Simulated assay, not measured.
Amino acid sequence: MSAVDEVGGVAEAPPLRLAVIDLGAVRHNVQAVRALVGPAEVMAVVKANGYGHGAVQVARAAIDAGATWLGVADLDEALALRDAGLDVPVLAWLHGPQAGFTQAVLRSIDVGVSSVRQLDAIAATVAELRREVGAVARVQLKIDTGLGRNGACEAEWSALFGRAAELERSGEVVVTGLFSHLSNTSDEEDRAQLARLHSAVEQARVAGVVPPIIHLASTAGALRLPETRLSMVRLGIGMYGLSPFDDATSADLGLRPAMRVEGRVISVKRVPTGSAVSYGYTYRTSAESTLALVALGYADGIPRLGSNRAPVSIGGERFRVSGRIAMDQFVADVHDASVAVGDRVVLFGDPRDGHPSAEEWAEAAETINYEIVTRVGQRIERRYVS
């Protein structure tokens, strides 16, 4: 039978797979961090489709809450923000060897540069564009202070700063910032990185480059190491209401998780003692029991490592995934609980609402909460609430 609404029409069936994104929580989290780190500015990091939450929607909420910059990994992500009408400063910092910078220059996207080669490529782009239109590239110098990933290493700083100063003097680029990234290994290690950043800033000044914005800290540094806040902090995982720490929950930090992932029970069956469940028979019922089938699987980003360990909530009661998570579905042994086809199944959300947390799923899957939310697949419908 079809569900019928109060005026006699057919009610919309609930989606099979759903991620509810609370933009009110995003705004709350931005405002909470802004109040803590001010006068430092806040860059809202919306790379990887806003950590799976939706880059454009989260970006708008963050700007509404007082973020002044947006951060993404690559230029395609930055251009998508521009296409959506977001005209605030945007920084993109990860580029392939053949990356083209034309649209970045034309659309005022700040390009994070980690080498003289990248600076030369940007200068060549500006020279080509100036044949038809006046153009100046906005760049931020990315240096490696000890993380060992992207960024110019110390032996390259002199050449990078010298070339940047030369291009600023010729009017081809404007250096809007200088930045690095903490390892978050320990306060001692992070302070050592901060000292190296200060050294780099001084070397840049001597070379003739004086960037107006210096930034180093992401959520972890911003919350626990005030001296790393500098001109601006990059707010990533904290904006989505998740903790970057093993010893503090979201609630401890005054943050609200923004994502709730849920599905529906699509089948219920009563089975005898010893019934095996899913591939490999890694789970068998210990008594006569009820099995609830949920149409979510690793194709939707639900980690297979959560098999037999990860929690779910049905009707406000906690159960465990039972047996191996498959591509499109998993089973929960609900024992003698009253569960029916169509019941809502919450995988993770805000623990204050009684839901399992992304951290619990991360522990079950031997990973981190960042990965749990970021991997949520596109087959899962996103709905936005405030």
Rank of each mutant, 00 (worst) to 15 (best):
I214M: 03
G342H: 04
V277I: 09
Q203Y: 00
P226A: 15
A32D: 09
G171R: 06
G297Y: 04
L119A: 07
G297S: 06
V331D: 01
I325S: 03
R205F: 03
L194E: 06
D83C: 10
S170F: 08
R320C: 12
S286K: 12
V126D: 01
P303E: 02
E128P: 06
V88G: 03
N308R: 05
V72W: 05
I266V: 06
E172S: 11
E172Q: 06
D246K: 13
A32P: 14
L223D: 03
Q57E: 14
G38I: 14
F179M: 13
R304T: 11
V30P: 02
Y51I: 04
G71E: 08
T102D: 14
F179P: 09
D22T: 04
Y279I: 12
V346G: 00
A62T: 04
D64G: 04
P351D: 02
R130W: 07
L147E: 12
Y370M: 14
V174N: 10
L293V: 11
E6R: 07
L223R: 01
V339S: 03
P212T: 10
V209G: 13
M239N: 00
G162H: 11
G208I: 00
K47A: 01
V10E: 09
R138A: 13
G208F: 03
V206F: 14
Y51H: 08
V37H: 02
P14M: 09
F330C: 00
Y51K: 08
V45L: 12
A99F: 08
E371A: 07
V174P: 12
W93S: 15
R375A: 15
D350T: 10
E154G: 05
Y279A: 09
V116H: 10
R205V: 00
H181M: 07
I63L: 15
H198Y: 10
E366V: 15
R352W: 14
R383Y: 01
D252R: 14
S231I: 05
H28N: 03
V341N: 01
D76R: 13
G151S: 15
P89W: 04
S199V: 13
D87Q: 13
R382V: 01
